[in-house]
Design a protein around this nucleic acid. Sequence first.
RNA 1: GCCCGAGUGGCGGAAUGGCAGACGCGACGGACUCAAAAUCCGUUGUCUGAAAGGGCGUGCGGGUUCGACUCCCGCCUCGGGCACCA
Length: 712
Amino acid sequence: MANEEVTAEGRSDIGNYPVFKRNMRQWTMRITAYADRLLDDLDRLDWPESIKLMQRNWIGRSTGARVRFSSAAGEIEVFTTRPDTLFGATFMVLSPEHPLVDALTTNSQRSAVEKYRESARKLNDNERQNDDRKKTGVDTGATATNPVTGEQIPIWIADYVLMGYGTGAIMAVPSGDERDFEFARAYNLPIVAIQMPPDEWFSSNKIAPTTDCKLWPTAFVGEGTYINSSNKNLSLDGKRSMSDAISQVNSWLENNKCGESAITYKLRNWLFSRQRYWGEPFPIVYDENDMPYSVPDELLPVKLPELTDFKPQALDPNDETTDPMPPLARVTDWLKVELDLGDGKKTYRREVNVMPQWAGSCWYELRYLDPTNIDRFVDAQVERYWMGPKSAGHTGGVDLYVGGVEHAVLHLLYSRFWHKVLFDLGHVSSEEPFHKLFNQGYIQAYAYRDSRGQTVPANEVVEQNGNYFYEGEPVVREYGKMGKSLKNIVTPDEMYDEFGADTFRLYEMSTGPLDASRPWNTRDVVGMQRFLQRTWRNLVDEETNELHVSDEPAPIELRRALHRCIDGVRQDMENLRFNTAISKLIELNNALTVHVNAAGSTPREIAVPLTQMLSPLCPHIAEELWQKLGVQTPITYTAFPVADPKLLLSETIEIPVQINGKLRTRLAAPADISDDELRALALADAKVIAALAGATPAKIVIVPKRLINFVL
RNA sequence: GCCCGAGUGGCGGAAUGGCAGACGCGACGGACUCAAAAUCCGUUGUCUGAAAGGGCGUGCGGGUUCGACUCCCGCCUCGGGCACCA
């Protein structure tokens, strides 16, 4: 069961059964071995910076050093990003779960330590990670040796140190780390300054410069002059550079065999087993000694056995000791299998865990390339054609992947890892699965809650004078992502029935930029339906259903409108700005409507490119018009229209005239007007003459063919 | 707490240093109709004015510039992510 399926009361959210933590033997994927490549290759991807950042944070690479402190119970290893502050390490803190705690704890401290570990165990992860909490901890009574100072320093345990990160133990440098400072203050542990902060630090903290940390209100984190930082053969004193100090300490640690430079990651290995029925079975069998073997290729794939009862094994609700049993463990005839794995025929036992959903989503895009291939998941040539690198250094991968941000660190990291493994094994030519990523926004909608706080079906809520009612009772309106829980879903099927798929697509694309979250408003859909109907009527006679498209040339202004539209739509399409592409098509169609109202038909030179431009946005109606237009080449294989640059310019242009940067009037001018002509034209304008009132402008700013501004 | 993103008419939005509000919805008016729907044509930021026109206006406060929704500094609000990571 996933963490989020457990309620605050420690029960399952479905069925309300008690939930117990249990250690289980499971499969994991060694994604941490790819941490560096997953991090570094982000730079080579065309992805939104925000998603790259989330992955960088998730991988969480820190560089620093491992340092070993000796103690009565053996060496205690810590990881630190600031080995340069080692001289200021005045105590150590271990996670309550650290394996050495038992051996370290002195008899006099044992009961206090046990009590603290018990209470830490009871806290759930959320409570433990809330940093508003006061720091708590207990002394183990033991000490360790600071390798650079040789001093004995106390060892404490505290729950702010997490067993899951680094080594589960830290060296505490209270003068240089805010958490350690807080802890030292709370338990009266020594604080020694090892850097002299700059004067500004003291003045911003409103104290006089001092090395006496008792007077400091907080730790100093940053670059300062090192003090109190020397032993027989290592001295940082007087130095300022943090990076120099770090490398100096690191080499000292290595020479003295008590540490070395190191890198750690926040990223953990990927737990890959699930205890349910629906999922790919592992191609793994065990012998009588529980040794795992992979199932030979010719027996793949291992398929799920047919089952009528998928329920997990029911245990007594208060049974905390019996091991859980996945559904597959009950299928006794599937479970046992006779194989010859080179040792003669023997009976093996199948793995009963299954893979998580991610297993499929990690490579489905590869299978889509070659879905009917029964020999391989994808033919090598097919893969190279669709996903291969475009040039030297290019990662390869699908050209464009559109998806929601919710996949930022799970699906998108797992599939990158998976793909890199396939690359390393020589199965694909691309290093990354998705070269360009685009995050579309969420469709949002109003939701309504009744007096009990329950959501009510949004489509049955009625508005009266700005208030909202459901079945006569007042409800309050809120706003959020469309979803089942808020009962504010509009399904595409309803839209298809009422408006058709083309209108639905067009509406979705027209409401705003693709990457922005935007509201759904069913009332607005009719605008796109009207547009399509108007376009249809411009090309097809409603009475006879016959095309009324003529071979007459289009008037020059309409032709210009067409080419401006083509030019704009091409650019918008390339940049995924479907909303503005649609606006431009509507503008063209509106101009066309005026022409059709007067002339009674649409010029073919307009009808054909208009239909083509509509095709990516509303393919069904475009296809039907295309057939009526009788073009031989299918619309899909016809090259997208190209604007004629000559038709993008008109003979006269309108130039705004500003006085002191404020718009005062506009001038009609020839399209090729020179700056001098423009100045003369503007100075002759009645409004400009009135505004100048005989004065000479201090400055005249002219943006050629765009604007003129008189500065008085 | 830290890191991203966003704030523009009644609503969704357009304009990335040069005419703020394209396009759509809604609203209002007109044509057609016995009538209504549909359709077509027009108006629609706001204040002021009979009008012509003028003032104000892109979350708030400063700045840069001939000129700022757009760039810079400081803040506010909302949304998202991470969160004792040593």
